[in-house]
Design a protein around this nucleic acid. Structure first.
Ligand code: FES
Ligand code: FES
Lengths: 147, 147
DNA sequence: AGAAATAAGGACATTAATATCTTTATATAT
DNA sequence: ATATATAAAGATATTAATGTCCTTATTTCT
């Protein structure tokens, strides 16, 4: 449904948001560890989010990534849009050039419903909401593995 | 949502089913033309469907692909399962090792709904149903392009 | 029997996604 | 100032998806 890059992006942001009250910047090592992702690949993704203004960053000692508290909450759709683009969210499920009720593919009606529900999710939920639930121990960013 | 291979698979089968009453075998050239797909790539996909017993084939002149009329109708889930596998249809939206309400990721609740709706689509619709609507001119397998 | 048509199979090519590594720029702390 | 920590940037590697091409096996037709 989402690319790995996009999943890492969402999880990174939720982690950052869950630590927003600590007033510190969070480095790549910590992020990659917290969400169980390859660090250097995650770095690339954070670069994109940073360029898009979705996340803030600072170099140097005690540097790292953080979410601007004065900025409005981040909707999932913004993240998906930045990393995967929006094609998935309006395009035809069977790959026709366009998706429309006037020239529908065989699965158009039912597929539209699936897609709409996905859009609803992405446009309704914010990183901050998800982070709050996470902090409350209601959800998790990685699978616990016993070593 | 689906790989290109899977989209080609579904469209090929819908096309075949829509011609099932003609009692003839349909060659790769015709299929690729009908669904606007790369012929050789489509060939590979048909091979898989054939091995899985989802479609029948015959070599030689007047050979081609066809759907066994005595066999039960083909549900979309069978096709997706054969080409893309089932991971998408039960796995976690954010890539956690497992998806469960006991150890949910931040988007588990809403994502499950999307995934359920997708499963509902795939387990409820058959190639034959889709083909019938297609034959009735209610849906299309490719975008009409003026040349 | 021989020619032709077709799917099956295998080899290869291209592209995109994922991942790693190295260098550079910048800020901080000493 | 110097050393250090960190993100940014760039280069490269690996893998998976997509796509093309060539050869082989099988069937049909003449
Ligand atoms: S035309 Fe295919 S999903 Fe709308
Ligand atoms: S745990 Fe992520 S979707 Fe269920």
């Amino acid at each position: 449904m989402f690319s790995k890059a996009c999943k890492y992006a969402i999880k990174s942001l939720v982690y950052l948001a869950s630590r927003a009250d600590e007033d510190r910047k969070i480095g790549l090592t910590e992020i990659a560890d917290a969400i169980d992702s390859p660090m250097h690949f995650t770095a690339k993704i954070m670069q994109v989010l940073s360029k898009q203004g979705i996340v803030s960053s600072a170099k140097g000692p005690n540097g790292g990534f953080f979410i601007d508290k004065t900025a409005p909450d981040i909707y999932l759709i913004q993240v998906v849009s930045a990393i995967d683009g929006l094609a998935h969210l309006s395009g035809c499920g069977l790959g026709l050039k366009g998706c429309s009720a006037e020239h529908p593919c065989p699965i158009h009606d039912e597929f539209s419903e699936v897609r709409d529900k996905l859009n609803q999710l992405l446009r309704g939920q914010t990183i901050q909401q998800l982070a709050a639930e996470m902090s409350d121990g209601k959800s998790y960013l990685k699978t616990v593995i016993m070593k």
